[in-house]
Design a binder for these strands. Structure first.
Lengths: 78, 78
DNA sequence: AGACCTATCTTTAGACT
DNA sequence: GAGTCTAAAGATAGGTC
């Protein structure tokens, strides 16, 4: 998205894709962090690649677990 | 962050905070969307405010539910 | 409250190390 | 592979209607 406008589609080049994932994950974390502090909300994210090894949670495994439980109890009410 | 550099702290003004939350949630969704398409990964997010009415999930309630289940089954393996 | 605008800040693709 | 750099693309605070 910068030296060249990027198309919103799967990056075929393996290396480029991995680099992009790494960078964007970082950027996303930053944004999540900003959102939650600036606006005083709870937020969590789960990201995982095709190979289940690349699992990333934000802000932390524990918090995610907690919020999932909360979310699911809300879901049941509907 | 634009006409003025914003400090990374709770926005005290109620209206400004709500507006910011709305805008940033949108921006975040966009980023999530980009991340998942560009890099071919699954991603989901849960955002909720102090009042539980403002619950937002991405990309959809159903997908989040699905991914939570997946995540929890992985967690149990550890 | 909501949509649109735009100057300015932030993110990031690509190149290099 | 993992950091650093940098210009271009993208996000957004504050304003207006």
């Amino acid at each position: 998205m910068t030296r060249k406008k990027v198309k919103l589609e799967w990056i075929t080049n393996d290396n480029a894709r991995r680099v992009s994932l790494k960078k964007r994950r970082l950027g996303l974390s930053k944004k999540m962090n900003e959102l939650s502090t600036l606006c005083g909300v709870n937020a969590c994210a789960i990201i995982y690649g095709p190979n289940e090894i690349e699992l990333t949670v934000w802000p932390s495994h524990d918090v995610v677990q907690q919020q999932l439980t909360h979310f699911q109890s809300l879901s049941e009410l509907e």
